[in-house]
Every structure is written in C-alpha cells, then in structure tokens.
C-alpha cells in the first residue's frame, strides 16, 4: 500500500515524533508506515487522514500507485471530489 504521509507531513511542517504523539503511536510506527513496511489499521489510517484534513483514499492508495490526477495542491488534492454532493437518489 502506498501513502503520502511524508508529503502531507512536510506540508504541515510536523515531525514524525509530533505526529506519533498525536496519533498515540511510536515514532517507529510512523516511519514504518511512510516506508511502506507496515500498513496501519483502519482506525489509525482514519486518524491520520483526519489529522491532515483529507480523505483516506487521498492519503493511502491500494496497489502500486495513486490514481491519475491525484496531485496535491495546498494540502488538498486536485481530484478531491465530494461524492455525496449533487447526487440524486
């Protein structure tokens, strides 16, 4: 699983230690997630996404790469759409 934690962390200018303390995990856990050696639990993944103010699929991608056009601009990816807006049921 790929992730953009390191990018978002740099954009928000926070260290691994600070993020780890906020998430209630060890710094090595954040490092292992960033390096792709450990896939976080859903709980931690949601916490991380919430911390950076993005959707979980903007922070993590299942498979090799993130979808096309998911570039990050100012902390909010370009292709961020609101799936529940404008939906007619």
């Amino acid at each position: 699983m790929k992730n953009k934690i390191k990018i978002f962390r740099a954009m928000h200018d926070i260290t691994q230690e600070t993020l780890a303390q906020e998430m209630g995990v060890a710094r090595q856990t954040i490092l292992a997630i960033e390096k792709g050696k450990y896939d976080p639990s859903l709980d931690l993944a949601f916490k991380l996404a919430r911390r950076f103010g993005v959707r979980i699929d903007e922070l993590f991608a299942y498979g090799e790469e993130f979808p096309q056009g998911s570039k990050i601009r100012g902390g909010i990816p370009e292709n961020r759409d609101a799936p529940h807006e404008g939906r007619t049921t």
């Binding site: 230690e17 090595q28 490092l31 390096k35």
Partner: peptide, 11 residues
C-alpha cells in the same frame, strides 16, 4: 526487523 523496528531516516 520486517516491520521497521530499527529503520532510520533523515530525521
């Protein structure tokens, strides 16, 4: 080791 216990980076 598999889950990066002793990994290090630039920080």
């Amino acid at each position: 080791r598999k889950y990066g216990e002793w990994d290090d980076d630039e920080e």
